[in-house]
């Protein structure tokens, strides 16, 4: 568990992060979402001490990070940034091996770990191991960046707008990859993003920040259905929230017995996909692969504001 206690960071007399306390549960993705200048990046950077807090504490597994040698602390925490920051003079393998090498792992173990990670991110080790960063596409470089951050099996992965430089298709793919890898490895992740969509897609929990403070910290569905302040509501976007909400659940949980016409929809598809299919094909119900149906009426019922 990562515990932030009354963290404050003041620049030139102005608090950029203002008395933030937050508990980040292990094995989950927590999305810090807010507009630019909300203090979310500064908050993230205080966790691995790229920024030192003016006051307050960061506890990882109950230990205050302020008491640890900073380079040793950082080797235990993965960090991914928007520009990726691959070392241009090191091959892909050497980039991924950075922290294991700093930690003095035996070469054979490092080699095996590099290949394992490349495979995990669907990059063929034989093809990519010896490539240089400038020979990678944006999406590939980004995946190598995440692989590098995960190389030494960190307790915690910090991601700062990791997909900001990718185009829409690349971003969707990278988000799915990250979700998959997180499910597989169970790594605790804290993700900074300005994109509420991304936060909803990836976050097990979302913390909304504005002016250095956390306005609401909760599960995505609660944030969507019960925004704590007008700012949170505006951030979600009233025109979008129904769709966000539908995108959180899979068809699987909404199937009911019955018969419907037309092609079937996969069980893992989101409710949002199901709604889109209903509207597009003009049907009131869709058959679900493996049996059962999902009805437009049920979708409508699901996408409504929580009762007061």
């Amino acid at each position: 568990m990562i515990e932030l206690r009354h963290l404050t960071r003041v620049y030139a007399g102005v608090p950029v992060v203002d008395d933030v306390s937050l508990n980040v549960p292990e094995g989950e993705i927590t999305a810090l979402v807010g507009t630019s200048g909300s203090g979310k990046t500064t908050l993230l950077r205080m966790i691995n001490r790229l920024v030192e807090p003016t006051t307050g504490q960061v506890l990882i597994g109950g230990q205050d990070v302020a008491g640890q040698p900073v380079h040793l602390l950082r080797r235990r925490i993965g960090y991914v940034i928007q520009g990726v920051g691959l070392f241009p003079h090191h091959s892909v393998a050497r980039n991924i091996a950075t922290v294991p090498r700093l930690l003095g792992w035996p070469p054979a173990q490092i080699g095996a770990r590099v290949d394992e990670l490349l495979q995990l991110f669907q990059l063929d080790p034989a093809t990519f191991r010896n490539r240089m960063p400038h020979q990678l596409s944006g999406g590939q470089a980004q995946r190598v960046g995440v692989a590098r951050a995960l190389a030494a099996r960190p307790d915690l992965l910090l991601l700062d707008e990791p997909f900001g430089a990718l185009d829409a298709i690349g971003r969707a793919r990278a988000q799915a990859d990250l979700r998959g890898v997180q499910r597989q490895l169970g790594t605790t992740m804290i993700l900074v993003t300005h994109d509420i969509n991304e936060a909803v897609q990836l976050g097990d929990r979302i913390a909304v920040m504005d002016h250095g403070r956390i306005l609401q910290h909760d599960r995505p569905e609660r944030i969507l259905t019960d925004p704590a302040t007008p700012f949170v509501q505006a951030l979600i976007g009233p025109g979008e929230r129904a769709f966000h909400l539908l995108s959180l659940s899979a068809v699987l949980g909404m199937t009911q017995p019955g018969q419907a016409q037309g092609p079937a929809i996969p069980r893992e598809a989101s409710l949002r996909d199901a709604l889109a299919e209903c509207l597009w094909s003009g049907r009131d119900a869709l058959p679900v692969e493996g049996g059962g149906i999902v009805t437009l009426a049920a979708l409508r019922a699901h996408a409504r504001q929580a009762p007061e």
């Binding site: 040793l72 520009g83 920051g85």
Partner: peptide, 15 residues
């Protein structure tokens, strides 16, 4: 040098 490279090096715990 690209700032994100220096940042990455620092964040990975290089002295």
């Amino acid at each position: 040098q690209p700032p994100e490279v220096a940042e990455a090096a620092r964040a990975m715990g290089m002295t």
